[in-house]
Design a protein around this nucleic acid. Structure first.
Length: 603
RNA sequence: GGUCCCGUAGCUCAGCUGGAUAGAGCACCUGCCUUCUAAGCUGGUGGUCGUUGGUUCGAAUCCAACCGGGAUCACCA
C-alpha cells in the first residue's frame, strides 16, 4: 500500500490502513484493495471510536462477516498499540482506541496549531467581490465576499500563498447612467455636501436615471411612438450612450467626472469592506482590462483554434457538448468573453508560478466559465486545468428573488447595522458587561453581529441556492456564529481563572478507562478537524468547516455543563480538562479565523 | 427545445467517495441558574429522504425515466 499523500487527512487512518494491508497479506494472502477500505466514526450506540466495514472483503477472506471482522480485529489489537480492544457487530469492526492516544493528541492540539499546515509552495489567486460601481453592495455581494474571503483563509491555513483580488467593473453604460443623472439632477451634490456615503449617492443617481428614463418613455409612447422605439430614443438614454462613446474617446470632461464619481464609490466600498473585515492584495479595473484578449484571440485564429464566419471570430465548442460562441464581433470589437480570456493570460504572466486561479462568481455564470476555461485550454495554456469557478447559489428573500430594479435588494451596510444593533440589544439585556467601557462594548457588539451574519451565510453549502431569513440571520442562539463565540469565551474564562500554569501538570500516564465519554467525544472531534480543513480546502467549501466547528463547540458545551473543570479536586484531571479546553479554544479560534470571524475573550 | 443545478421534519439546513435505528437549528411541549458565563444544558413531539423503476449483501447517497422548482443557451455585460 502506498504512503498516504495527505498526512493531515486522518492520522489514525494513517496507522490503521497500513496495518490492514499487512493483515490482508498475512491472514488472507491477498493485496488489500485500498479503495474498498473505509473508516467511519463509530456510532454512539456502540462501543468504539473507529469502525471498519468488512462487507467488501468477504470474498477475499472466504469467511462470513463476523469471523472476518474478528480475525482482523485480533490482528490489529495484537500489532497496534493504539488499539485497546475491539468488538464486532455484524460486518462492523469497532475499534476502541487507547486513552493514551487521545490524550497525546489532545496535548498536541493544545500546544500547537493543528489547523495550520506547512507551506507547500503553491501560489493561488482568489478573485471575489467584483462589484459594479453604480450601486452599493448588497446581500448577494455579501455571500460572495464572505465566501471568497473564507476560501482565501482556508487555503492559507492549508499552506498556500494566496493573492486576493477583485475586478472592479468601473466602466460601461451603467456608470454613465449615474453620471448623466447626476449632471441633470445633482446640483453639484457630493458625499460631503449631502452627508450621504459615496456609493449610496452614486446609487441614488442610478435610480434617478431609471425614473427619468421611464418618464421619458411614457411621454414618447403617449405621442404614439412604439415602446421599442421609445426605449432607444429616450433622450436621457441617448445621452448616456453618447457619454460612453466620449468616455471611450478619452474625453477629458467625461473622464474627470467619471473619476470623481468612481472615487466616491470606492470610498463607500472601502468603508463597507473595512467593517466587514475583508481586504484585497491586488485590484483590477475593467477600464484597464477590457482591451485585453483581442490579440490572444487573433493568435488563436492564426493557429486554427478559432474560425471566421460573417466577419466575426468564433470558437466551436460543439464537440464538447457546448455551443459556438463569438469572440470578436465582425467590427473587430471585443465581447465580455474576450477580456476574460485576456485577463486570465495577463494574470499568469504577472504572477509567475501561480498555480491556481479561483473565480468566486454566482452560478448564473456557470456556462460562461465552462466556455472560458475551455477556450484557454484550446489555446494551449498548461494552467487551464488549474482554473476554478467557485460557483455559489443565489440568495433568495422570503418575498422571492432579489431584484435591484424593484428595490427588493438588502443593502449591505444596513444589514450589518441591523445585526450589530441586535447584538447590542441582547448584550445589554444580559448585563454581563458592567465593567466594559462603551468603546469595548461597541467593539464586542460589532464582533458578535458580524459573526451572526457571516456564519449565517457561510454555513450553507456554497453551491446551493439559499434563503435569507432576516430573523434567523440576526439570531444569536442555536446553530449560529455567536453561539460559537460564546463557547470560546467560556473556555477563555476557565483558562483565565485557572492561571497560566494550570495545564502544565497534565499527565499522559493515566490508566486507560479514565477518559470520560464527554471528554473523549470532544477530543475525537478535534482529531477530525485537520481532515475537515483539508477537505474544505480541496472542495473550496467553508460550510463543512463551519459545521464541524459548530459540532465541536456543541459537544464541548455538553462536557462543560456535565463535567467539573475548575472545581475538580484531582489535580491531574483538572489539568487535563483545562488542556482540553485550551485545545478547543485555539482550534475554535483558528477555525473561525478561517471563516473570517473574530472571537471575543468575554461576552 | 438543448445543457446544467436543486427537491431530506411545519420552516431553514447537515448527511451524499453506497453501510448499523436518517441528524442539527428554529418553532412547539418539558425540566435545570445559592455551584466554572443559562447567548447554555436535559427530555419530548415531528420523516413515504419528490415519484417510479434499476444496480447490490445493502441506496437519502449510484444509474434511468418522470414530476416540481431554478439557472443558462446574444456579434449583452
Amino acid at each position: 500500500m502506498e504512503v498516504r499523500e495527505k498526512p493531515y487527512r486522518d492520522r489514525l487512518e494513517g496507522v490503521l490502513a497500513p496495518a490492514m494491508a499487512t493483515a490482508f497479506q498475512r491472514l488472507f494472502d491477498h493485496e488489500l484493495d485500498a479503495s474498498k477500505l473505509s473508516f467511519q466514526s463509530t456510532r454512539p450506540e456502540f462501543e468504539g471510536d473507529v469502525t471498519i466495514n468488512v462487507f467488501p472483503f468477504l470474498k477475499v477472506s472466504g469467511k462470513g462477516p463476523e469471523p472476518t471482522a474478528t480475525v482482523l480485529g485480533e490482528f490489529l489489537q495484537e500489532h497496534l498499540s493504539v488499539v485497546e480492544r475491539f468488538n464486532v457487530v455484524k460486518g462492523f469492526l469497532n475499534l476502541v482506541i487507547t486513552d493514551q492516544y487521545w490524550l497525546e493528541f489532545m496535548q498536541e492540539a493544545a500546544s500547537t496549531d493543528i489547523l495550520q499546515f506547512p507551506a507547500n509552495g503553491n501560489k493561488v489567486m482568489v478573485e471575489y467581490s467584483s462589484p459594479n460601481t453604480n450601486k452599493p453592495l448588497h446581500l448577494g455581494h455579501m455571500r460572495n465576499i464572505f465566501l471568497g474571503h473564507s476560501v482565501s483563509r482556508i487555503l492559507e491555513s492549508t499552506g498556500h500563498e494566496v493573492i486576493r483580488t477583485q475586478v472592479v467593473n468601473d466602466r460601461g453604460i451603467h456608470i454613465c447612467k449615474s453620471m448623466v443623472a447626476w449632471q441633470r439632477f445633482g446640483n453639484g451634490e457630493t458625499p460631503k455636501s449631502s452627508g450621504i456615503k459615496g456609493d449610496k449617492l452614486v446609487g441614488k443617481y442610478y435610480v434617478e436615471f431609471d425614473k427619468a428614463y421611464k418618464r421619458e418613455i411614457e411621454l414618447l409612447v403617449a405621442k404614439g411612438i412604439t415602446k421599442e422605439t421609445a426605449d432607444k430614443e429616450a433622450p436621457i438614454m441617448q445621452e448616456a450612450q453618447a457619454m460612453l462613446l466620449k468616455w471611450e474617446a478619452n474625453d477629458p470632461e467625461v473622464r474627470t467626472l467619471w473619476e470623481k464619481m468612481n472615487g466616491w464609490v470606492y470610498d463607500g466600498f472601502n468603508a463597507t469592506y473595512e467593517r466587514m473585515g475583508v481586504a484585497f492584495d491586488k485590484l483590477y479595473y475593467e477600464s484597464q482590462t477590457y482591451v485585453l484578449g483581442k490579440e490572444d484571440i487573433l493568435k488563436g485564429l492564426e493557429k486554427g483554434v478559432f474560425y471566421k464566419k460573417d466577419g466575426a471570430v468564433w470558437v466551436d465548442n460543439t464537440p464538447e457538448g457546448l455551443d459556438e460562441k463569438v469572440l470578436l464581433r465582425s467590427d473587430g470589437t471585443s465581447v465580455y468573453m474576450t477580456q476574460d480570456v485576456g485577463t486570465a493570460i495577463q494574470r499568469f504572466q504577472e504572477f509567475p508560478g501561480l498555480s491556481k486561479l479561483i473565480y468566486t462568481v454566482g452560478n448564473e455564470q456557470d456556462y460562461h466559465f465552462k466556455v472560458l476555461f475551455l477556450i484557454l485550454k484550446k489555446l494551449g495554456f498548461p494552467w487551464a486545468d488549474e482554473l476554478h469557478h467557485l460557483s455559489y447559489g443565489m440568495v433568495d428573500l422570503p418575498s422571492g428573488k432579489m431584484k435591484s430594479r424593484e428595490g427588493t435588494v438588502v443593502d449591505a451596510d444596513e444589514l450589518i447595522e441591523e445585526v450589530v444593533q441586535e447584538a447590542r440589544k441582547t448584550g445589554e439585556e444580559l448585563s454581563k458587561l458592567d465593567d466594559f467601557s462603551e468603546a469595548e462594548r461597541t467593539e464586542l457588539f460589532e464582533m458578535i453581529g458580524l459573526a451572526a451574519l457571516k456564519y449565517y451565510l457561510l454555513k450553507v453549502d456554497p453551491k446551493k441556492r439559499m434563503l435569507f431569513d432576516p430573523a434567523a440571520s440576526i439570531d444569536l442562539h442555536g446553530h449560529t456564529g455567536p453561539f460559537i463565540q460564546y463557547t470560546y469565551a467560556r473556555t477563555r474564562s476557565l483558562l483565565r481563572k485557572a492561571g497560566p500554569d494550570a495545564t502544565n501538570s497534565v499527565s499522559l500516564e493515566q490508566g486507560n478507562g479514565t477518559l470520560l465519554p464527554e471528554e473523549r467525544a470532544v477530543i475525537k472531534l478535534l482529531h477530525q478537524f485537520p481532515g475537515v480543513l483539508d477537505a474544505a480546502a480541496t472542495g473550496l467549501d467553508p460550510a463543512s468547516l463551519a459545521n464541524h466547528t459548530y459540532e465541536l463547540v456543541k459537544t464541548y458545551n455538553g462536557f462543560y455543563q456535565n463535567v467539573p473543570v475548575l472545581k475538580e479536586e484531582d489535580p491531574a484531571k483538572r489539568a487535563m480538562r483545562l488542556t482540553l479546553s485550551k485545545a478547543v479554544a485555539s482550534s475554535t479560534k483558528k477555525a473561525m479565523w478561517c471563516l473570517g470571524i473574530e472571537v471575543p475573550e468575554r461576552m
